[in-house]
Amino acid sequence: MITDKISYSRLVIELARSTFMTFLRPSSTAIDSAISQMRSIGLGALPTASLIAVAAGFILALVLEIQLSQIGKVEVVPSLLWIILTEQVVPVGVALIFAGRSVSAVTAELGSMQVSEEIKALFTMGIDVVPYLLVPRFLGFQIMLPVVTLVGIYASLLGGWLLCGIVLRMGIADYIYYAFDGASFWSVMVALAKSALFAFLVATIAFYKGLNVRNGSREISEATTQSVVGAVIVVTMADAVVTSFQLV
């Protein structure tokens, strides 16, 4: 990967091997680096994701209220919100936020390190690029995307309650009762599993595009755009596939 371009499959294999070895023999520097990446990749996305989740919950609740009030079934709005937000909207939405924010940043960072020979410098210092650069970032995505998804689920339910409280004059206790009436632990597990899958996909796309930059700032810009677009497409298609399996 220093001069020759790396294939996606080889990248995934190297990443898997290095991540396994990091867990087998963790060092304090690896842990510090992973925590730092969790902070920049995940914590930084938390405010944006939470805000969008509240808005998404509010909007979805509004749409459901309008439709269900026509058949006198507004009391099922909270439980429908739980199912739709938890299993679909929030995991995909958070992954798309990560794609726009963190995938672009990681791609640009790695691309710029290639162009400025920093990656070559690491190689000549006898430092393995994958464990040093990629594994902490991979763990940042893999841990924080599900965490932010979990926070986003509850933020979106809050948004839903804002609508239910204002329009339906539903008290918080009633809202929670109706929401959790339709809720199941399985929905949360589906959300976390999806977000873990999305994290793997968007992270590896960011690494692949960033490490394969070779020539100057124009190519960094192109790679960043391609990685965001690629991540968005892949997340959406992966969600379609996984959701199809749920119906089987």
């Binding site: 710029s112 390190m113 400025s116 020979e117 920093e118 070559k120 410098a121 690491l122 000549t124 210092m125």
Partner: peptide
């Protein structure tokens, strides 16, 4: 071995 790159190649 040590390596001194033309641009320095310091980790930003």
């Amino acid at each position: 071995c040590g390596m001194l790159f033309q641009s320095g190649a310091l980790i930003e």
